[in-house]
Amino acid sequence: MKPEYRLSVDYLQDWPLNDIMLPDPRPDWDRILTPELSTRLFAWATFFNDHVDMETGMFGSELRRLQFDQEGAELLHELQQQAGHLFDFRLVL
């Protein structure tokens, strides 16, 4: 059974995989993922923190929420393509 990582963002989090919560050793994402995907993962977390209200959890517009959800689905697909042979991934929006 492969380890499963959750793809999600929480407030003030800059990396959207829950690898910090699982037992060591943490994956060497720099060797496993392309730099482009890593950049997109960080950008997705930044988008969340820039646009989500910490009190209400609302994005301020339906378009922003849709953009966030769509990018999450695309990131999940890319993670599965690049590292699905090593890990399982689950998107939590």
Score class of each variant (00 low, 15 high):
residue 15 W to S: 02
residue 3 P to Y: 03
residue 20 I to K: 09
residue 29 W to Q: 05
residue 12 L to V: 12
residue 4 E to K: 11
residue 19 D to G: 07
residue 10 D to L: 11
residue 27 P to Y: 06
residue 13 Q to W: 06
residue 4 E to M: 07
residue 12 L to M: 12
residue 6 R to V: 10
residue 21 M to Y: 15
residue 2 K to H: 06
residue 34 T to N: 01
residue 25 P to C: 09
residue 30 D to W: 06
residue 4 E to F: 06
residue 7 L to N: 00
residue 36 E to S: 06
residue 26 R to N: 15
residue 14 D to G: 07
residue 35 P to V: 00
residue 20 I to Q: 11
residue 7 L to D: 02
residue 14 D to I: 12
residue 19 D to I: 11
residue 8 S to M: 11
residue 8 S to D: 05
residue 1 M to K: 13
residue 9 V to E: 02
residue 24 D to G: 12
residue 24 D to C: 13
residue 13 Q to P: 04
residue 7 L to G: 02
residue 14 D to P: 03
residue 1 M to Y: 14
residue 22 L to V: 07
residue 34 T to L: 01
residue 23 P to C: 13
residue 13 Q to S: 08
residue 19 D to M: 13
residue 16 P to T: 06
residue 18 N to M: 10
residue 21 M to L: 12
residue 32 I to G: 03
residue 9 V to F: 02
residue 25 P to S: 12
residue 23 P to M: 15
residue 32 I to S: 00
residue 5 Y to D: 00
residue 32 I to R: 01
residue 3 P to E: 04
residue 20 I to H: 13
residue 16 P to M: 11
residue 9 V to Q: 02
residue 33 L to W: 04
residue 15 W to D: 02
residue 4 E to H: 11
residue 24 D to R: 15
residue 30 D to G: 05
residue 29 W to A: 05
residue 31 R to Y: 13
residue 11 Y to D: 10
residue 6 R to M: 09
residue 32 I to V: 09
residue 36 E to Q: 08
residue 32 I to W: 00
residue 12 L to F: 12
residue 35 P to Y: 01
residue 16 P to Q: 13
residue 6 R to W: 10
residue 21 M to G: 10
residue 36 E to P: 02
residue 29 W to R: 02
residue 19 D to R: 05
residue 33 L to M: 05
residue 4 E to V: 05
residue 33 L to Y: 03
residue 6 R to I: 09
residue 15 W to Y: 08
residue 1 M to T: 14
residue 29 W to F: 11
residue 25 P to N: 07
residue 3 P to A: 05
residue 26 R to S: 15
residue 1 M to P: 04
residue 26 R to Q: 14
residue 13 Q to T: 09
residue 27 P to A: 03
residue 6 R to Q: 11
residue 13 Q to M: 14
residue 32 I to K: 01
residue 8 S to P: 03
residue 13 Q to F: 10
residue 36 E to H: 08
residue 27 P to K: 09
residue 2 K to Q: 02
residue 35 P to F: 02
residue 27 P to L: 08
residue 4 E to D: 07
residue 9 V to D: 00
residue 15 W to Q: 05
residue 34 T to V: 03
residue 33 L to C: 06
residue 24 D to W: 14
residue 13 Q to H: 07
residue 23 P to S: 15
residue 11 Y to W: 15
residue 12 L to W: 12
residue 18 N to E: 09
residue 3 P to V: 03
residue 23 P to L: 14
residue 18 N to I: 11
residue 20 I to L: 12
residue 4 E to Y: 07
residue 18 N to R: 14
residue 3 P to K: 04
residue 20 I to F: 13
residue 21 M to V: 09
residue 13 Q to K: 09
residue 11 Y to H: 12
residue 17 L to Q: 01
residue 18 N to H: 14
residue 26 R to L: 15
residue 13 Q to V: 07
residue 15 W to H: 05
residue 30 D to V: 05
